[in-house]
């Protein structure tokens, strides 16, 4: 009788369960969302009229390049989103661990996420370190993503992230076009524009040439993107483009073939991706049709960016 009463008391006083946690919210708010780290280049009008000076083919590659980068990092960044659906496994004052829990994208694999924070004298978090580890069930963990974030919440802080593709290759969960080396992403989401840098300088990846890709996006939709396009002859076209929210813009690019650098070409286009101005000293683009020096259109028609 006495032991039954004691058991009842224990149940009454100790039976508390759930994931109602302000601190969990704080940790989750420090993890960047996949969407916040995506390159967002405006798409041009769907139907194009006949362009008098020709199509802005260089700019059209900006969208596809951005999409390739987004798709390439999406797989590993999805692991970050996965922890939002499960409560932490362990909670300490300044750390959380999620998992191991099954990787929904890779059957037979498990994910564990570890996260620590540092707090300043006012009690405000200023640095967060996190790592995502993956293993075949029963095997050893390998780090597939690690990052640091500075600031209380991801949507307006700066951070860096390393995607360890070399480990995802070892685990066999990589995509065919993934790089074979660690890839770094730097981001600053606190200012306008937000800036994202994807460092692929160590080699090829996602079907893109080795390059330090940089994107800036303003809140109103305009921005800039520096990227590279592989040529069929082993040369690379390096582009710096600025665009409006509607897709008009200007760029400058040159072709790099090993140590050799071509003359710089300047182009402007409208929202229909029709060229409005071309300045190509060596007439290397199709619009110039071989006539040097080549200046077409009116530079006044270039958007102010």
């Amino acid at each position: 009788m006495r032991s039954s009463a004691l058991l009842l008391l224990l149940i009454i006083f100790c039976f508390a369960c759930g994931n109602l946690s302000n601190e969990d919210v704080a940790f989750l708010e420090a993890i960047p969302q996949k969407e916040a780290l995506q390159v967002q280049v405006p798409k041009n009008a769907a139907s194009q009229p006949a362009c008098s000076l020709g199509d802005a083919t260089i700019y059209e590659s900006a969208k596809s390049t951005g999409d390739s980068i987004n798709a390439g990092v999406s797989g590993l960044l999805s692991l970050v989103d996965a922890i939002r659906a499960v409560p932490p496994t362990t909670r300490d004052t300044d750390s959380r661990t999620w998992g191991p829990f099954p990787d929904g994208s890779h059957a037979g694999f498990e994910v564990e996420v570890q996260m620590q924070r540092q707090i300043d004298e006012t009690g405000t978090p200023w640095r967060w370190d996190y790592s995502i580890l993956e293993r075949p069930k029963g095997g050893a963990f390998l780090t597939v993503l690690e990052g640091n974030f500075f600031g209380p919440q991801a949507k307006d802080g700066t951070g860096r992230m390393t995607l360890h593709f070399e480990n995802s290759v070892k685990l066999g969960i990589n995509q065919p076009t993934d790089p074979q080396f660690p890839m770094h992403i730097y981001y600053d989401l606190g200012d306008n524009p937000r800036a994202i840098s994807v460092d692929l300088t160590e080699g090829l990846g996602f079907g893109l040439p080795s390059f330090d890709y940089n994107y800036t996006g303003f809140a109103d939709g305009h921005g800039g993107f520096s990227y590279a396009i592989a040529g069929g002859n082993g040369c690379t076209t390096e582009v710096t483009t600025l665009f409006t929210a509607l897709g008009a813009g200007r760029d400058s690019f040159h072709v790099r073939c090993g140590p050799f650098l071509s003359a710089e070409v300047q182009q402007c286009w409208d929202v229909s991706a029709c060229l409005t101005f071309v300045n190509d000293p060596l007439a290397s683009t199709l619009a110039c049709n071989g006539a040097k020096p080549c200046v077409l259109g009116n530079p006044a028609q270039c958007p102010a960016l």
């Binding site: 039976f15 508390a16 759930g18 994931n19 109602l20 919210v25 708010e29 939002r84």
Partner: peptide
């Protein structure tokens, strides 16, 4: 009185945050 209490909260403007809940007994 001995009671149970069950709470659920959601964050309508934060899609990145899942619902949270808590259950316990309260004398």
């Amino acid at each position: 009185r001995v009671a149970f209490i069950y709470l659920v909260r959601s964050f309508p403007n934060h899609v990145e945050l899942q619902n949270q809940s808590f259950f316990t007994f309260t004398p």
